[in-house]
Design a protein around this nucleic acid. Structure first.
Lengths: 342, 342
DNA sequence: GTTAGCACTCGGCCCGGCCGAGTGCTAATC
DNA sequence: GATTAGCACTCGGCCGGGCCGAGTGCTAAC
């Protein structure tokens, strides 16, 4: 734990660095403190902070920049969250009123907005299928040899899937199958439904009602591959605005490549999905070792009790956390509350 | 029209420049021609080519690079298309066999593949809704105050939309409405259906059958906003591999920003959507003035007689057209033939 | 404990010189 | 008359040196 002076200096260094992206010198800090202490004193304090690992020098005779640990300490103990200004709140509120009926669209909309407000890349992960209860399930004839399964989940998520079909089902039979499966399905989550279907199949084997068997076969086929969560990224180009990346094309490449791989993004937001709390992972703390230069501020959002996914901002370690953290928190809460009222 | 020597020199300059991204000197060309002509002669020829506007010099005493017009001439008259190699064809063929039932997924898959094969960014535009005939139309209850409209179009495109609904419809009524609308809809394109519905509404006003009026209202509501085409972009990061952009972050920004705006991308592929033929727009020829440094190689794909969308590669002007053109052409044809056989 | 002073370090920038690739022109050659 | 060898010239890129300034650590004085 730092004493008060050390803490204040660290805070000022971090904040100045966030603003300028340049190493911060002792004179600058002295001025910021209203000359209460001279540069020389500041230098001593800074040397101490360097010793405990909160600051470092890119080279001798340059100012200090905060280390990952320095940012961590800053976030945990020194951060003063800025209030969201009215216009930001209003803008985000519009997500609710924008008249987007589908939950997907709403989440996407929010992501886009958040990315423009924060000037960072915004990622939303939707892992809807695993936890969410089915509200309805329908089978429709899509073509002579394909059936369309449409599932509506609690809260307005819609998912459809085309299933290849051995032909020969009459419209009437399909309707019966539909009714039967629908009865089985409503109120269950998809993994539950899958289990139930497999279970029923065992029992049906004895009874041998061919239509129901057919229904179950169709159902199990539809659920055979689990749908991975969707990932939406907005505002990728904001990464380019960051001076730390503008100079180094290698880093840029790594980050933009990561944006093309859903799996990498999922790893980045994994932690946030489970818990509801806001999470910040700074630089090398984040679970993707290839990207030690980025930070992720993320939060899960939920619908009632069940976790629905997560939303997060991706930017340089040198993010304006005091602004970004409230933004993400507010948005996640907003999403949760909208989803809940459906 | 160039004489044979001029044409050959232009071809060699273009090809060398495509390969190296460096200005090409007279000595290099002389060597490539097996010393048939000396550098001095080449210089004369190059000076001629510069005069007619096919080459230019970034500065005195540097080699030549082709102008847009130079590339144009090259593509129109000198291009020798490379055969696709077997593995490329095979890979693309797999798109057909990958067992993706939905047309969306297939198109996306193709785009991804094409981007890795070409090492450029690949864009697919799907403008399905306007031209494609409905195969089925269904209304499903999604929640107490929302109805889900699911439309399946010719060829396996699925589209759904949630409609807010004045409550009070019984399941039975909904079914009737469904049957009624379905009857109206099948075989029409969406604009046609929209027109038909508006038409019916006029007639119904007289007859005043409240259920049908309701059906028509619902239908017109669902179709009120037209769905813009979907745009999928794969392989954005390939842009970073191009030396001409690696150095200049400004250009990068412009391009990546464009990738975030669907409307810009649509403008880029607009021309290709209409015609079925392959199109190449070089640098400033392309319809987005903000991006004079990129070229687009694109082709429409279709389903039977109706244009379904377009697929294109976006890269620097210095693209390897001899390889990229056959790739795009083949892929577009492949998509068309898969779609046709559905 | 704080501060003023001082020597020192080191990156960034500017400058000048050198090198090499490439050109245009001219005169000689085929 | 076309081609080519030769030559002077141009210009960007690279290298090394010197200067500047920001910032440091240390020490001695307050």
């Amino acid at each position: 734990m730092l004493d008060e002076r050390g803490a204040q200096v660290l805070r000022l260094v971090v904040e100045d660095y966030i603003e300028t992206a340049e190493p911060v010198g002792s004179r600058t800090i002295s001025k910021k403190m209203g000359q209460a202490l001279s540069p020389a004193t500041i230098r001593n304090i800074m040397a101490d902070l360097e010793e405990v690992g909160y600051l470092c020098q890119p080279h001798t005779s340059a100012g200090r920049i905060p280390t990952g640990a320095g940012f961590r300490y800053y976030i945990n103990h020194l951060l003063a969250r800025k209030q969201l200004i009215r216009s930001e709140r209003d803008l985000l509120q519009q997500v609710a009123e924008a008249g987007v009926a589908g939950a997907d669209d709403m989440v996407r909309h929010a992501s886009r907005l958040l990315s423009t407000l924060s000037r960072h890349a915004c990622v939303v992960v939707v892992s809807r299928f695993s936890h969410q209860a089915l509200r309805s399930l329908s089978l429709l004839r899509a073509s002579s040899d394909r059936i369309l399964l449409v599932a509506v989940l609690q809260g307005g998520w819609v998912q459809h899937r085309l299933i290849e079909d051995e032909p020969g089902l009459t419209t009437d039979e399909l309707e019966k199958i539909n009714a039967y499966l629908s009865d089985l399905a409503v109120g269950l989550t998809l993994p539950q439904l899958r289990a139930k279907i497999l279970n029923e199949m065992k029992r049906e084997k004895a009874r041998y009602d061919s239509l129901m068997r057919r229904a179950l076969l169709l159902g199990s086929k539809a659920l055979s591959e689990s749908v991975p969560g969707e990932v939406y990224i907005e505002g990728r180009a904001n990464i380019l605005e960051q001076p730390e990346f503008a100079e180094d094309v290698q880093k840029l490449k790594r980050i933009l490549h990561a944006f093309e791989e859903k799996s990498v993004i999922l790893r980045l937001l994994d932690a946030a999905m489970e818990s509801e709390a806001l999470q910040v992972s700074i630089g090398s703390e984040n679970p993707v070792e290839e990207l030690p230069e980025i930070s992720v501020v993320s939060s899960g959002y939920h619908q009632g009790e069940t976790a629905m996914g997560s939303i997060g901002l991706i930017g340089p370690v040198r993010m304006d956390y005091s602004r970004v953290i409230p933004l993400v928190e507010y948005t996640a809460r907003l999403l949760s509350s909208i989803l809940e009222n459906r």
